[in-house]
Design a protein around this nucleic acid. Structure first.
Lengths: 198, 198
DNA sequence: GAATTAAGTCAACGTATGTTGACTTAATGC
DNA sequence: GCATTAAGTCAACATACGTTGACTTAATTC
C-alpha cells in the first residue's frame, strides 16, 4: 500500500452539505422539481461542484436518500423493547419529530412515488430491515404478511399525519396515536389474523 | 335564452380522451414528468389542442384527478352495508382492481405527493367525503379521529400493495386482506380507542 | 352562401433543466 | 520547485418543457 500522492480527498464540508441540501429540497418539492441548481444554492456550492462527488442527479438522489440510521434504530428498539408494537409505531412517529430525520424520511417517501431508484430504496427498507426485524417479534405463521400489515398501518399513519397533514391526525399528540394504534400492530404481529367468530 | 349561433361545443371524443390519457400517464410517471406532449400523444391529439379545453397544465391535472365516483361509491357502500369496516377496506381494494379506477386512484395518490393542487384534492376526499361518511358509522366520541385512523390503515394498505408493490401484500388475495384488516377498522370505528388494561 | 363559433394543426418562443469542458486554486508527496 | 490529485468556478451546450399565435377545417344558424 503506497501512500497516494496528491491532494487527499478531504473530509470537506461540501459533500455532506450537498447531501443535506438534497434531502431538504426533495422533502419540500419532490425529486423532479429539486433542481441541481436549487440544491447547489441551498448547499452554498457551485452546481458543477456536485459532479465532483456524484456522477449524476440520479446517483445524488440515491446517495442522499440511502436509508439510514432510522430503520436500524427502530429495528434495534424493536428487538430490545418488551412491547414491540409500541416500539414500532412510536419509533417511527418520534423519529419524524427530529428535524434532520424528518427531512430524510419525508424526502424518501416523497421521492419513492415518482422515482424508481427511490422506490427501490424504500422497498429495500421494508423487505430487508423492517420486515426482517419485525418478523423476529412476530408469530412465526405468516410472519412476512404480519410484518407488512404492521408496516402498512405505520406508513399510512405517517403519510396522513406527516406528509398530507390530515386533521385531526396532524395535531394529535404522538403519545395518543401510539396508544390507539399499538393494539392494531400487536394483533398483526402476534394475534389471530383472521377474526375469530365472536 | 336565444339559441347560440355557430358550432356547438360537441360531445367530442378529444376531451375525455385527454382526461383519460392524463390519468394514465400521471399514474405511470407522476405529475412532473407527465409532459403535455406525452399526454397529447397518448390521447392521439395535438399538444396545442389540449389548450382548447384547459387553460394550463395545472388545470388539466386538477380536472383529470378531480375525485370521482369512487369516493361517493365507497361512501354509499359504507352507509348501506351492515358491516361498515368490511365495506370500507373492501370498497377501496376492489375499486383498485378496475383498470380505469386504478389509473385514477394511482394518479391521484402519486400526484398528491408533489403537486399542491392534487394534495388539496386528496385532502378534500378525506375531510369531506370519507371522514364524513365514516363518521356516521363511527362511535360519536372522537369520530373525526376514528375516521382518520381508519383512513390511515386503508391508505397505507393500498399504498404498499398497489403503488409500492410490497410483498407479500401485493400478491395476497383481496379477500384475505379484507379479512385481516377489517377488525382493525372495526375497532377504530366502534371499539375502545385506548387499549383497556387486560 | 355568409356569418359565427368550436376543433384541430403547425411552427415557434422563452425558459429551465442536466450536464460538460476548460480553467483556477488548494493540498500533498517527491 | 515540481508533479499529482482534489476541490471549486465559469460559461456554455443540447434538450425538453409549457405555452402562444396564426391558420385551417368542421359544424351550426340565419
Amino acid at each position: 500500500m503506497n501512500k497516494p500522492i496528491g491532494r487527499r480527498p478531504g473530509p470537506g464540508t461540501s459533500r455532506p452539505a450537498i447531501l443535506a441540501a438534497t434531502r431538504d429540497i426533495v422533502a419540500e418539492v419532490g425529486v423532479e422539481r429539486a433542481s441541481m441548481r436549487a440544491i447547489a444554492a441551498r448547499a452554498d456550492v457551485d452546481p458543477a461542484a456536485i459532479y465532483r462527488f456524484f456522477d449524476s442527479k440520479d446517483e445524488l438522489i440515491a446517495a442522499a436518500l440511502r436509508p439510514p440510521d432510522i430503520a436500524t434504530q427502530v429495528a434495534a428498539g424493536l428487538t430490545a423493547s418488551d412491547d414491540p408494537a409500541r416500539a414500532l409505531v412510536g419509533g417511527v412517529l418520534f423519529a419524524w419529530e427530529v428535524p434532520e430525520v424528518r427531512a430524510h424520511l419525508t424526502a424518501l417517501m416523497r421521492a419513492a412515488f415518482t422515482n424508481d431508484r427511490a422506490a427501490e430504496l424504500l422497498r429495500g427498507v421494508f423487505t430487508e430491515q423492517i420486515v426482517g426485524a419485525v418478523q423476529s417479534a412476530a408469530h412465526p405463521d405468516d410472519s412476512a404478511l404480519r410484518a407488512s400489515l404492521a408496516a402498512s398501518q405505520v406508513i399510512g399513519l405517517a403519510l396522513l399525519r406527516e406528509i398530507l397533514g390530515i386533521e385531526p391526525l396532524a395535531n394529535e399528540s404522538t403519545e395518543r396515536l401510539v396508544d390507539v394504534t399499538a393494539p392494531t400492530i400487536e394483533r398483526y404481529l402476534e394475534g389471530e389474523l383472521s377474526k375469530p367468530e365472536s
